[in-house]
């Protein structure tokens, strides 16, 4: 079944892009989840939608050749900086940044879509992902983002980990929390923009959080959680893409449903392990 993905170039692009996203989304998602920032991915993805709508508007009205992928990425990165500012302003209510950014993103999208008098099916692809929408240029861009993400996570792993666990301790020990956090949120914005081609705006946060939610149940320690998250992410992407292609369903839906199945499986495994340990303890 997977053979078609190597036969045709457009499917090959999608498959390789999917593998890259299956790596970076859960990798960064591990930090997103443990920092209790899961909804930030949702907020940023909605701003990315505004950026995509803006790009499509420019394309339609002014025939500008700027890919909506880049305008989406630009909006997402700008919104990430704005999220940080809002979290600083509302120190006691940091979660307020999420509805502000999310609703702002949706509002801007509606305005751009209305000004353009609607778009063709392109927008549907951006909402739920597509198996056929990935160009070779998109693949290169996403490969570049993957390399950036891997470099940032490798070089700043210990600082990101320390900050995620105990920000006060990190600051006291001399870590520049603001700079590291800013770097983290910008990289998160890039990953969201990159993932949208495959899973779509509405489901991108799921690919960052569901594999982590599954691995956190059964992993021992942070590095193992990251490793298992990537494995679950890749399994979800491969099964989801193949199923999406054969059943002619946007892959965002099939990828997320596969992730949910893996999550349920991990909950079951954890429960079985727990019951066995309890029985052993009673004996």
């Amino acid at each position: 079944m997977i053979g078609h993905f190597f036969e045709y170039e457009f499917l090959r692009n999608t498959f390789y892009t999917g593998l890259l996203i299956g790596l970076i989304a859960p990798l960064l998602g591990t930090f997103v989840v443990v920092r209790r920032l899961s909804l930030i991915a949702d907020a940023l993805s909605h701003v990315t939608l505004a950026g995509i709508a803006f790009g499509l508007l420019l394309e339609k009205k002014f025939a500008l050749g700027l890919s909506p992928f880049y305008t989406g990425m630009g909006f997402s990165v700008m919104a990430s900086a704005f999220v940080e500012q809002l979290r600083r302003v509302y120190k006691a209510y940091q979660e307020l940044a999420i509805p502000i950014i999310l609703s702002g993103g949706v509002a801007l999208s509606v305005v751009f879509i209305s000004v353009a008098n609607g778009f063709n099916t392109d927008l549907y692809n951006y909402l739920f992902g597509s198996v056929s929408a990935v160009s070779r240029q998109d693949l290169w861009s996403i490969l570049a983002i993957t390399i950036i993400v891997l470099i940032v996570i490798t070089l700043f792993f210990k600082e990101l980990f320390t900050l995620s666990f105990d920000e006060e301790h990190a600051v006291v020990s001399g870590i520049h929390a603001k700079r590291i956090h800013f770097l983290f949120i910008v990289v998160t914005a890039l990953v969201i923009a990159a993932s949208i081609r495959i899973v779509g705006v509405l489901l991108v946060s799921a690919l960052m959080t569901l594999p982590v939610a599954a691995s956190i149940r059964i992993a021992n320690g942070f590095k193992q959680t990251m490793f298992l998250s990537v494995i679950f992410g890749e399994i979800s992407v491969i099964i989801g893409l193949v199923a999406g292609y054969y059943f002619e369903i946007p892959p965002g839906g099939t990828i997320v449903l596969t992730s949910i199945l893996l999550l349920l499986l991990s909950i079951l495994i954890k429960r079985i392990k727990f019951n066995r340990a309890r029985k052993r303890a009673i004996q």
Partner: peptide, 23 residues
């Protein structure tokens, strides 16, 4: 701290060296 945080004892103690080891 968040008791559900997935970190081993060794990983938690390593945080005390983060700043000393450097960026």
């Amino acid at each position: 701290f968040n008791r559900g945080f997935p970190a081993t004892v060794s990983e938690v103690v390593s945080m005390g060296l983060t700043a000393k080891v450097g960026y």
